[in-house]
Design a protein around this nucleic acid. Structure first.
Lengths: 195, 195
DNA sequence: ACCGTAACACTAACGGTTAGCTTAAAAAAT
DNA sequence: ATTTTTTAAGCTAACCGTTAGTGTTACGGT
């Protein structure tokens, strides 16, 4: 076993959380996000309303429960990349993977739901900004800077922009390449790009 | 008179709206955004709660009622710029003006309030995205394109990023210049930049 | 075996938001 | 000038996401 007996309590907690998330996502996809209330989710998952909010900070968070795993994926793409690989290509690879992942056939209904709900779109945007801040910190660390500079923060935001823009483009993969071509040009003109 | 007698009804409506916005902003700054409810605002402005929501789509919109004027300021910076002036410098000028405007001494308490409220920050972000979409359309029109391309949308987003990033920087004006140096490099590498 | 604590339940409420209906004043039509 | 139509604004009552307060149960370390 790779997992060192995570304790029954933690396993039960994880199971409850998973049950809630699965139930919520199923109901949302069946009836539509706005047509399903938190009380419906709680009843169907056979838990109390307060239990839902002890596992998820908001209704929208129920939809993005899986993507929280990728929360630090971008930062890890910087810190854990092959040695000697330049920064920008590493970021481009990661964005490519993320775009491919969320434009997959199986995820289509989910993203259609997200795109049609202003509340969910807004939640996703603010997630992206959090990711950008984490990424800026990782980039600064990679350059051995004491704190993120304006250039680091800018690169981070441009990178998450690439994800958001490519997702909406007709040809997502081509869009990633096109936008990263622009990012590369922007980055190479900064002093931070040269050691 | 330059105003062609806007009709008593419309004048009263505008007055009511202004009254609500002024009262709300005053209460928010006096007691704090979270400590003031919509019912408080309505009572103090001497209107019904439903009247507040017939003028403003949400509580957060009460805070940004003035900035709605600048909603299309960015797009106008493109469409109404001096002839023969290149695109990027025109955008940089506008962002400079916007940053100067919202980092002014008189606006400090307002922005402190906004920065300390997650709800208001999120609302501002989604405003920015709306602005970016409008700007992308204006850029495409300026280039005589039938529809916004990926490059247009990218430039638009980078531009609103410049605003957001510069606002938080130690030296906002310098940050605008630094980021626009990067944007210029990104834009000149795209095919769209050359006629 | 014991106790501390973490997970969950229940009730009730708070605050933003909306629906449905009524009133009254302004604008348009007669 | 009177009638008719429009529309801003009001009131009530609720919906829905979210939180506070308070128990209760069952796991985990000692």
């Amino acid at each position: 076993m790779t997992v060192p007996t995570a304790g029954r309590r933690e396993r039960k907690k994880a199971a409850t959380r998973q049950n809630i998330a699965d139930t919520a996502l199923r109901l949302f996809l069946e009836r539509g996000y706005d047509e399903v209330g938190i009380r419906d989710v709680a009843a169907e998952a056979d838990v109390a309303v307060t239990t839902v909010f002890s596992h998820f900070t908001s209704k929208e968070a129920l939809v993005f429960s899986q993507d929280e795993n990728f929360e630090h994926g971008l930062a890890r793409a910087v810190t854990a990349r092959p040695p000697n690989e330049p920064l920008i290509p590493a970021l481009r690879r990661e964005i490519h993977a993320m775009v491919r992942h969320c434009t997959a056939e199986s995820a289509a209904p989910l993203w259609r739901m997200i795109d049609s709900s202003p509340a969910l779109r807004q939640y996703e945007e603010s997630m992206h900004l959090r990711h950008a801040e984490a990424l800026a910190a990782a980039i600064a660390a990679d350059l051995a800077l004491p704190a993120p500079t304006t250039a680091c923060r800018t690169l981070a935001r441009f990178t998450v922009d690439a994800y958001a823009l490519a997702r909406e483009a007709d040809d997502p993969a081509a869009a990633v390449d096109e936008i990263f071509h622009m990012i590369e040009a922007a980055w190479t003109t900064t002093a931070a790009a040269r050691p």
